[in-house]
Design a protein around this nucleic acid. Structure first.
Lengths: 195, 195
DNA sequence: TGTACATCAGTGAACGCGCGTTCACTGATGTAC
DNA sequence: TGTACATCAGTGAACGCGCGTTCACTGATGTAC
């Protein structure tokens, strides 16, 4: 057997992938072990050969979701950059895009889960913290050189909060909130190149 | 019987009060009907004489929590105003106070539940929308005359997002994020009196 | 003022269901010789 | 190359538990006369 990944590793990756979408769509407790296994083409009995507990899967699923988020934000930002504007502007326009209101399962894991994070077991909370740190670092990297990390944290909080409220409001009000938040963030940071 | 509230009304109010704290502490699904009734000094069997369903209680609990939030923000803002500063500054300093990180059960119902709101049944989502609208209106009323409601919505999103991330980060990082967000919001809006 | 009855608020057992977890087993894959 | 055996990944029934909801019943409160 010389394949890059064993059969078990492939199954494992499929389960984590399904779970990373499930927790974003339905929340930490919104989908059960049996459903996740089924969606991954397996039966629930085999679950504990892959994970010590449901929470162990949740941790891996959050990590996967966060890494996907960062990768696709970087990629979309790069694409948008070719159309002019600053890197920060491109990031904000990608994250606060109206399309991000729907398809939560492919969206930001922090926006999907943040108000539930403090209520999770320690291992899960720790991963949540890592996700927030990684997102802040990404925003920081898009801000002009010399910007403070704390500034990136405020921007992150604004984007996450706006996306959540836009989802709750829904419809035109939601889209309008995202648009207004984009304008506010971009307007505010366009002159900050001389930091 | 000439009391202002009947025995049943008193029980009802107690149940709603317990639930309004429970959902903020533990989330929409974090506490069961039986526990809520017990905490209100009753047994679970009587629940359905008060509410058509668990969700019906959740709606009332959210409304209660939101009204309490607004009342106590107004009160605390007023108190802080006597020490100088603008009304907006007083509101931001109240909401983004380090004390708000803990004691979630007495804190902002939106920050406690926002990422779960989109996943609830319609009646609950509708109440969630009302809570967001009410909070935006409160922020709007604290901004200088002539400010746009959309500006208030962005501020609300920023405060809610910052509080959630601060809770997730915890410790010094959380407190620092709140402080930084306070500074950002207040600095940005202190010159906007001439709107 | 007292008795008889009706209504009301709450009790506690029971229901059906879904969930996380365990475990004895099976069929497929890989290894020894 | 072929046979015998060991390991591995996954199966499916079963467990204990907690939850929302229902319901027959009880004790207290209020009303009629």
């Amino acid at each position: 057997m010389l394949k890059g990944q064993s059969r078990k590793e492939l199954s494992h990756a499929r389960i984590v992938d399904v779970a990373s979408k499930a927790i974003r769509r339905a929340g930490y407790r919104g989908i059960g072990v049996a459903d996740i296994m089924k969606e991954a083409g397996l039966t629930h009995g085999g679950f504990y050969a892959h994970f010590d507990s449901r929470d162990a899967l949740v941790v891996e699923a959050m990590a996967k979701a966060g890494q996907e988020n960062i990768a696709s934000l970087l990629q979309a930002t790069e694409r948008r950059l070719t159309q002019g504007g600053t890197r920060f502007q491109a990031l904000v326009e990608t994250y606060l895009n109206a399309a991000h209101i729907e398809r939560m399962e492919d969206g930001c894991v922090i926006a999907a889960l943040s108000s539930e994070m403090t209520r999770q077991e320690d291992v899960v909370r720790e991963e949540a913290r890592r996700r927030v740190d990684a997102m802040v670092a990404l925003v920081h990297s898009a801000l002009p050189d010399g910007s403070e990390e704390s500034e990136a944290a405020v921007v992150t909080a604004t984007m996450v909060g706006a996306l959540q409220l836009a989802r709750t409001l829904g419809g035109k009000a939601g889209i309008a909130l995202l648009a207004q938040t984009r304008r506010a963030l971009i307007g505010r940071h366009q002159h900050s190149t001389h930091h």
